[in-house]
Design a protein around this nucleic acid. Structure first.
Lengths: 168, 168
DNA sequence: GTTGACTCTGTAGTCGAGTCCAGGGTTTAT
DNA sequence: ATAAACCCTGGACTCGACTACAGAGTCAAC
């Protein structure tokens, strides 16, 4: 089907910059065809142009966008946050203060989470050491649950830890 | 309904140790009635005895169990892991080596996650600083996504970071 | 002209840790 | 006698980031 009917807006494949079909984008980016369509639906990727048959065709710049998305994800951003960043980036031409603000906030959250995890680590370690001492005591079901520190947790501490449990 | 029909196994409320109905357990533990039933279904709590009318009645020891669960959760264990720990604790009477093993493994994972997050933090910081420098450059859509470091991420690094993305 | 790889849409399912609800029955206080 | 507060079951829903599938159309190769 090479002759173009009117209304045909297929982007030319011969014109120097080669266009990519979704499978190739997937292979090159490592992002999975279904995920690509999902990203499009979620507003992370612009709707690409289509071949006459309805196939998506992407320019190479989508690979940069996907690399950006992956990196942002790796940095701990949710897709929704990434979507907002991209959106802001498109409309706010000047200093993109909002974007930096998101990153700043995110970093603060990350710091908080880090502090928490370090505390958890210390508690785990203490628990292990406790168990190494207590473990051999007879008369308990196991000496761990009933006997150990963590079996009789201080309520306020547990509460404090729980606050930060926003799924990542 | 005080006269007991045959088959009645209601645990006596007068017998010194007072039994708790689910609402009271909830209030005392801070765990939420629905969550308590959910824990029961998930094998984290033994099935409690029932009143003749079918109401759950718990002994005070359930509060210890719940404190344990909460603390373990705060330490980063999933309910499934906690379930396994409790199960192991019940059947493995001697040194509960498995239990300690789980905790040890968990701590290693936590260490890994901590290292990752610290790396993320450093990258975020670098990105922010990069943006502070690049942000004012004209000619970009925003100077952030297209212009910044993270827009052209090294693939291998992104992959490396992604591996650890087990939701938490 | 037919295989086989690819693509499309749309919907449903996954996981974890619950929450919420409908439509009942029970207990307690007035 | 009746309202309020509690309890029961079973099932649906939530969120995030996908993945899987059904059923159909398209494209390149032989």
């Amino acid at each position: 089907m090479r002759e173009l009917k009117r209304g045909m807006r297929v982007v030319d494949e011969e014109e120097g910059r080669r266009m990519l079909k979704i499978g190739e984008v997937s292979r090159r980016s490592g992002v999975g065809v279904e995920a690509l369509r999902f990203y499009e639906k979620s507003g992370l990727l612009e709707r690409p142009s289509r071949t006459y048959a309805g196939y998506r065709v992407y320019g190479r710049e989508v690979l940069d966008r996907l690399a950006f998305i992956k990196q942002a994800q790796a940095l701990g951003f949710s897709l929704e946050e990434i979507r907002r960043i991209i959106e802001d980036a498109r409309k706010g031409q000047s200093p993109c203060e909002e974007v930096r603000e998101i990153v700043r906030r995110r970093m603060e959250e990350l710091d908080e989470r880090l502090r928490e995890l370090q505390r958890h680590r210390r508690e785990l370690k203490a628990t292990l050491e406790e168990w190494d001492k207590v473990g051999r005591a007879p008369g308990h079901v196991c000496g761990l649950i009933e006997g150990s520190d963590i079996g009789h947790a201080h309520h306020d501490r547990a509460e404090g830890l729980k606050r930060g449990k926003r799924g990542g």
